[in-house]
Design a protein around this nucleic acid. Structure first.
Lengths: 209, 209
DNA sequence: CATCTAATCTTGACACCGTCAACTTGGCAG
DNA sequence: CTGCCAAGTTGACGGTGTCAAGATTAGATG
């Protein structure tokens, strides 16, 4: 995910911070968030057991940094998705954004877990809090677009943003959690999102057109 | 939450299993899921450090048991809510169920965290898996009701259940996470749910009536 | 009541973990 | 070259999960 540009020398790793983030992502994938330890991360990066503290302070700092990275990826994934759907309707752009959200969770469950399912206290880490806010803003500005253009008449755009976010976030969470019942999970994740979004946005479209 | 009916004697606590569950719920409330330790739970229950293992096997077993308890509470909260709205429309019953879901998360965040945000692997604990499934079934049977009665024509009831679940679960998760932006969070949680559910179910109502 | 048995809880040990303080290394500005 | 400081190391501490072995008692069987 991140370029691990380790130098050869023993002391002075060169890019230890990123190497540790990669290591943690790997550990989460293999053993889950609870399997993460500073010492194991250090081991994987080929570095002494307390080197991580120098870069991230403590364990929470390390996880927080990975979460922050995740929010960055998620935000740009959503922005790209909207850009790629530039020539389609606003509703389709919104659908594309929602799909990007859920796809991110499905493709990078390790990041998603750390971001939302690790019991991390966002308000204790300002940069993380800001990254999360910025990600939400991507969503919110798009919903405001829609409302401004006259869709969803009478709906508070912020409510709509929260509601839309809840939908995609809930679907992503349940999917990552393995909670989606098998009968339904047989569908592609793509089909599921499509069905969910259509059942909401579709109605709006009916009312609007 | 659970009755801690400890007997007086020193050996043979009397109801250690429940006492431990209560202790863990308390620890999660105070320090988060990552603050839970078997030894601390044992300490709070006034018992030796490795007594918990005898009842729950290991740490994951203990957390899993608490999560299972949570699913039970959630399921009955939803059932009660539907029962209480027996005389209202089906849509109102569904709204009541959704509100019960989010309210459960807000009132028992410790349980909710352990159930969904602790990185617990449900498929590794069969009874937990079953409890989660049973909870979802409460939701699903209600949505099937609605579809059977002719609402949401052409929609697969299972899709609708997943979609509805995603919505309330996402809202609950983001709320517990503290991720709902302040501007929006100034509303009561109740108002938020109402707004979200109306923007979905409301449309359906328009089409149906 | 006496005895046996199995469930319950304790004790002690081990390796692993997060964190801290003191130390070493080496790039680099002056 | 000198000295400084960020980067990484070493060693120690108490806390933690888990296991094995032992102690205690409730409750069934006789």
């Amino acid at each position: 995910m991140t370029s691990t540009a380790a130098k050869k020398g023993n002391y002075h790793h060169g890019d230890l911070a990123n190497a540790l983030l990669d290591a943690v992502a790997g550990i989460v994938s293999e053993k889950g968030v609870s399997g993460v330890s500073l010492r194991e991360a250090a081991r994987r990066a080929g570095v002494s057991h307390s080197a991580p503290a120098h870069h991230f302070g403590d364990k929470e700092g390390l996880l927080s940094a990975l979460a922050e990275q995740g929010f960055g990826h998620l935000a740009s994934a959503m922005i790209s998705a909207v850009a790629a759907a530039q020539d389609e309707t606003d509703l389709d752009q919104m659908k594309a954004m929602g799909k990007a959200y859920v796809k991110f969770a499905a493709e990078y469950p390790a990041h998603f877990d750390v971001m939302f399912r690790s019991g991390l206290n966002k308000s204790a880490h300002e940069t993380l809090h800001n990254a999360a806010d910025a990600t939400f803003m991507v969503l919110q500005s798009k919903t405001e677009d829609l409302v401004t253009k006259g869709m969803f008449p009478g709906v508070d755009p912020r409510d709509l943003a929260v509601f839309f976010w809840s939908l995609v976030h809930g679907l992503a969470s349940l999917w990552v959690d393995g909670s989606i019942p098998q009968v339904v999970a047989d569908k592609t994740l793509d089909e599921l999102i499509e069905a969910a979004l259509i059942s909401v946005l579709g109605f709006a479209e009916d009312l609007w057109t």
